[in-house]
Write a protein that binds this DNA or RNA. Structure first.
Length: 771
DNA sequence: GACCATTTATTTTTT
DNA sequence: ATAAATGGTC
């Protein structure tokens, strides 16, 4: 027993020992949070003799749940298998399936992910003669989620909550959306949580049954809970009040998904008898890194003040590298990785590259591939999001739930069966007219004056055959039998095979991989049929491809900062640190948005154990346009004494940077330190580049015209130059990034602070030059 | 209805 | 820059 507690500091011990009643653990980054939760579970089982099936631990991601389960099993052996460790969404599916009947939840329901949801919303908009291009389905989806939550739990009727000033009939869309979901027996991600909370509130017998089964609750990442998740935790634990929540308000980064930071900030109000334990000792990062993170997050007003104590002491400085463009950024990262591997014997697994948006991963991928460095991208291109996988899943979903119209129309003509828009429209019309499902129309096509074309019959037969097989799965048939049969008789496989493009080949490989993952699933879930399989697959979004789990050479990890939460790496590259990229342009204008970006930055910095590299690109291509970017304001917030500067030019950059324009003998560079605290003070530093070839001046203030500007614009007689810093009467301060035309037709492109850029006719624009 | 050429949107983050 | 959506033609 004592070895359980030996490795813990006093606060951690206290958290483990406090098993009864509500407990709030405010766990700073790297303070050993997961260790506390897992040891607490082990302590309950081994010392308090709590049966493992009485214990529930809830996390946000499948990955976190898997990791926690593994560590619990390490501590407690086979008993750990019986601890209920799941994500909020998978726990909800479990509850709805097992106890949902009285709450009107169908025995089987499909789960609509965000893309299914958007498809459905788009259909509804089209029916209402609205243009999905002007009214974004995604925007509607987020309104629908937040309104449904409020309508459900804050007593106001949905009508009172409809967003105002929308130029269309939102209540109608809202109503139709939910009618349609009901008709197709589907729940969206948000419904899973809301319906679970509703069930717990309105079905006391079912709640009591769950409370007999579950007595101790642990909620991880509590700062990211939304209202429904808050209620689920509250209802489930209401009998014993043994609710332990763990979180860090500084790491709340999901408010855009409905997370409410108040849940953690107000925990002590909700549970007046709550014990509060703060974990401040950081075991992960060297002092320079941790202190830098503290200095950044200090700029947020809406937070609980706290100290982070770097137990490890001093290490290396943070390196901030300015690069000319995104290729230079990638080149720098790769060169650092190579030299750290050669000189310090570091391994691929030690490195992680973070970026703000998925789109930024491409250049890194390209460079890593060029150097033959093994890497993996977490998130981003999700396996289960690939077209071919979604197609096959759509077939399976129809077989399990023929009412699922979104899936039905996804593949009714895949591969092509001659069922185009006309056929689809007539099926839809007949379904609406007779108020039956589209599948029923197809079944009875002969009587319903639907042209029972050859293609329609083929499709019908595929689904019917699939249903026959599914009825005997597991048993006579396995899930993989079913999938193999479907891709065979639907002609899906054949159509891929007859296409000899590399694309089709890759798809076939992915399908193979999918079938392999089904074999694995079958091994682990011998009793599962199609329904269970589909429901677990719908929640597996960011799961890794099955084949890259083990490899002795390891992988360099690429991911967004969001996904990085909860992880740690010896060496971290925090890339794209530019205003407009990080903080992201869409969040830069509100205090709330900016504070969340800052928390995200804090999360990124605190992932690094030994060494942190921060990079920014002066010029970044996005939307097919070249943009000038200034270093992220968050870099300013790091004290200069923790930073060592570096810079790197991509040698192969074509066009914009003629290499002979850089004086090669000059090895010192200077830049205005608008990015350091005292605006205007100038620092110089020695220049070091692994392969010094080109010299580059990073000055934004006294940029002399040299060859650098060539190729970036036409010659013109404008009184302004590229990179002049100007003030626009309406938009404020910005940098000139393009000058085109002549005479009265001089067009000036200005990139404003924050990354927005606009084009003006010089003739009509009052611009003041600042520098 | 299939196939092409042209146009348009895409880029925030995820269960 | 690129993928998806649209529109026109056969």
């Amino acid at each position: 027993m004592n070895n359980l507690l030996e490795k813990l500091n006093n606060n951690q011990k206290e958290a483990v020992l406090h098993t009864e009643g509500p407990l709030l653990i405010l766990a700073g980054a790297g303070s050993g949070k997961t260790r506390v939760i897992t040891n607490r579970i082990a302590y309950l089982i081994q010392q308090k003799n709590v049966p493992p099936y009485n214990i529930v631990a809830v996390t946000f991601t499948n990955k976190a749940a898997g990791e926690m389960k593994k560590r619990v099993i390490d501590l407690t052996g086979s008993q750990g298998n019986s601890v209920f460790i799941k994500t909020f969404h998978s726990a909800s599916v479990y509850i709805l399936r097992r106890f949902g009947e009285r709450a009107g939840i169908p025995r089987f329901f499909s789960i609509y992910d965000s893309s299914d949801q958007e498809t459905l919303i788009k259909e509804i908009l089209l029916e209402m003669k609205l243009d999905p291009k002007k009214i974004k389905p995604r925007m509607i989806a987020s309104h629908i989620s937040s309104i449904k939550e409020k309508a459900e739990f804050f007593s106001a009727g949905p009508d009172a909550l409809m967003p105002e000033h929308l130029p269309f009939n939102f209540p109608e869309v809202y109503k139709t959306y939910h009618q349609r979901l009901k008709k197709v027996c589907a729940l969206d991600f948000n419904d899973l949580l809301i319906e679970t909370a509703r069930l717990l509130r309105s079905c006391p017998e079912e709640l009591a049954a769950m409370q007999r089964m579950w007595k101790y609750f642990m909620i991880d990442e509590y700062q990211d809970t939304n209202h429904a998740q808050y209620l689920i935790s509250k209802y489930l634990s209401s009998a014993t009040r043994n609710l332990c929540v763990v979180g860090d308000d500084d790491q709340s980064i999901y408010s855009w998904r409905g997370a409410d930071i108040k849940n953690i900030l107000d925990f002590e109000k909700d549970y007046s008898e709550a014990k509060v334990i703060t974990l401040e000792e950081n075991y992960r990062s060297v002092a320079q890194i941790l202190d830098s993170a503290s200095c950044v997050i200090k700029n947020n007003v809406h937070r609980k003040k706290k100290n982070l104590i770097p137990v490890r002491g001093d290490g290396e400085l943070i390196t901030w590298c300015r690069t000319n463009n995104e290729r230079g950024e990638a080149g720098y990262v790769i060169s650092k990785i190579l030299s750290l591997k050669n000189r310090e014997g570091m391994k691929n697994n030690d490195f992680a590259v973070f970026y703000r948006t998925n789109a930024q991963s491409r250049v890194f991928e390209e460079y890593l591939r060029k150097e033959n460095l093994p890497y993996r991208i977490i998130g981003g291109l999700k396996f289960y999001d690939r077209k071919e996988i979604k197609d096959i899943l759509a077939y399976l979903k129809i077989i399990a739930n023929p009412a699922d119209a979104v899936s039905l129309f996804r593949v009714i003509n895949v591969p092509a069966r001659g069922l185009g828009s006309a056929s689809i429209a007539s099926i839809r019309e007949a379904a609406a007219e007779k108020d039956i499902t589209e599948w029923e129309v197809i079944l009875n096509s002969s009587e319903l004056k639907i042209r029972a074309s050859k293609g329609l019959n083929e499709f019908k037969d595929v689904i019917l055959r699939g249903m026959e097989i599914a009825a005997e799965t597991p048993g006579k048939y396995s899930l993989s039998d079913l999938v193999n049969e479907i891709i065979e008789i639907s002609g899906y496989k054949k159509s891929m095979e007859s296409d000899d493009s590399t694309e089709a080949k890759a798809r076939l490989e992915n399908i193979d991989e999918f079938i392999n993952s089904i074999y694995d699933y079958e091994q682990m879930n011998m009793e599962s049929g199609l329904d269970e399989f589909l429901q677990s697959v719908s929640l597996l979004t960011s799961e890794e491809n099955p084949d890259d789990v083990t490899d002795e050479t390891g992988f360099i990890t690429l991911m967004t900062v969001h996904i990085a939460k909860g992880l740690e790496f010896p060496v971290v590259f925090l890339t794209g640190m530019e205003d407009g990229t990080f903080p992201h342009i869409n969040s830069i204008d509100t205090e709330q948005g900016l504070e969340e970006e800052r928390r995200l930055c804090y999360v990124g910095i605190t992932r690094a154990m030994d060494k942190l590299y921060i990079t920014n690109a002066e010029i970044r291509r996005s939307w097919g346009e070249v943009r000038y970017r200034i270093p992220s304001r968050f870099i300013n917030e790091i004290p200069a004494e923790y930073i060592e500067s570096d810079e790197y030019i991509d040698e192969y950059s074509s066009g914009s940077y003629p290499s002979d324009s850089f004086p090669s003998e000059n090895y010192s560079a200077s830049f205005s330190s608008s990015s350091f605290k005292g605006r205007g003070s100038v620092r110089s530093f020695s220049y070091s580049n692994p392969k010094p070839k080109a010299q580059y001046e990073f000055s934004t203030s006294s940029f002399s015209s040299n060859g650098f500007t060539e190729g970036m614009s036409d010659h013109s007689e404008s009184k302004f130059k590229l990179r002049d810093v100007v003030v626009h009467p309406k938009y404020g301060r910005g940098t000139i990034t393009g000058i085109k035309g002549s005479g009265d037709n001089i067009k000036i492109t200005i990139s404003f602070t924050g990354g927005r850029s606009k084009v003006f006719l010089e003739k009509y624009t009052q611009l003041d030059r600042l520098m």
